[in-house]
């Protein structure tokens, strides 16, 4: 088989997947564009606004927490050799393979009413399912940084801590932020665990489900479109500014 035909087949298969991903989202948005009135009234609905706020705030707090708690773990996984390291790495990835309803059950079993239907519960569920993106991004970046940069900084008089803050961390920051954006995106799209742990205070993703069950597809669509537009624009804007930032380096 020639190189050309291989390229054609790969392009065709890849395009199919791309269309499959973009089609439902664009058709939903386009359909809604024909009914701007309902979108406008949704935007004035205090319940929707409050749910969107809840989603953004909790996902942002989750991403910040993932940085604070995940970056040190990523550093240890990248730089230290210890017994049981594979097990620790496995534990970081476990949330990716557990069904999220199960995550909710597990969290509720462990922390019971302290996380039931409150902000803490939302953040707990979000952090559980999304922290691994930040940990893994930080770990991969730390592992790729030439350790000799740190050695040189030490011989020039920097303590371990100063070396981390002046050399290792600044060099890893774009990758860590990129991981944190993935954590944010994963957190704002979380539903399964939230259904079990924190149905209230309502987040936008729960509200979409709520409206769908109560009023049907057309009632839930404007909220869904708002959530998609907001998530996508934040995601794209962050990725874009990060890419620009790292180009300038």
């Amino acid at each position: 088989m020639g190189r050309r035909s291989l390229d054609t087949i790969f392009a065709a298969l890849g395009s199919f997947l791309l269309v499959y991903i973009t089609l439902p989202i664009t058709s939903m948005i386009l359909l809604q564009a024909g009914d701007l009135g309902s979108l406008e009234s949704t935007l004035r609905d205090p319940e929707v606004i409050s749910a969107l706020e809840n989603s953004v705030i909790t996902a942002t707090v989750t991403a910040l927490l993932a940085i604070v708690l995940g970056v040190p773990l990523g550093y240890v996984l990248a730089r230290k050799e210890f017994r049981g390291k594979d097990l620790v790495q496995g534990m970081v990835d476990v949330p990716i393979v557990i069904p999220h309803s199960v995550v909710g059950i597990a969290l509720l079993t462990t922390f019971s009413s302290s996380i039931l239907d409150n902000y803490l519960g939302i953040i707990a569920a979000m952090l559980f399912v999304s922290a691994s993106f930040t940990v893994n991004a930080a770990r991969d970046r730390f592992a790729s940084i030439d350790e000799r940069l740190e050695h040189v900084a030490r011989t020039l008089g920097a303590s371990k801590w100063r070396t981390f803050t002046t050399v290792t961390f600044p060099l890893s920051l774009p990758a860590i932020l990129s991981g944190a954006i993935m954590t944010w995106a994963r957190a704002i799209s979380e539903v399964g665990a939230l259904l079990v742990v924190a149905y209230y205070p309502k987040t936008a993703q729960i509200l979409v489900l709520d409206y769908f069950e109560e009023f049907g597809l057309s009632a839930s669509r404007p909220v869904a479109v708002l959530l998609v537009l907001m998530s996508l624009s934040v995601f794209v804007a962050l990725r874009w500014s990060l890419a620009r930032g790292s180009e300038g380096r």
Binding site: D146, R148, L149, H151, V152, A153, R154, T155, L156, G157, A158, S159, K160, T166, V167, P170, L171, R249
Partner: peptide
């Protein structure tokens, strides 16, 4: 520790800090 020995080290790769200017590297 290395920072208390008064010994400078130039590795084979030179290990210049890529996120700093030449001047910031020198004055680090």
């Amino acid at each position: 520790p290395p920072e208390e020995r008064g010994v400078s080290y130039v590795p084979q790769s030179y290990a210049l800090f890529p996120h700093m200017s030449v001047l910031d590297n020198i004055t680090y």
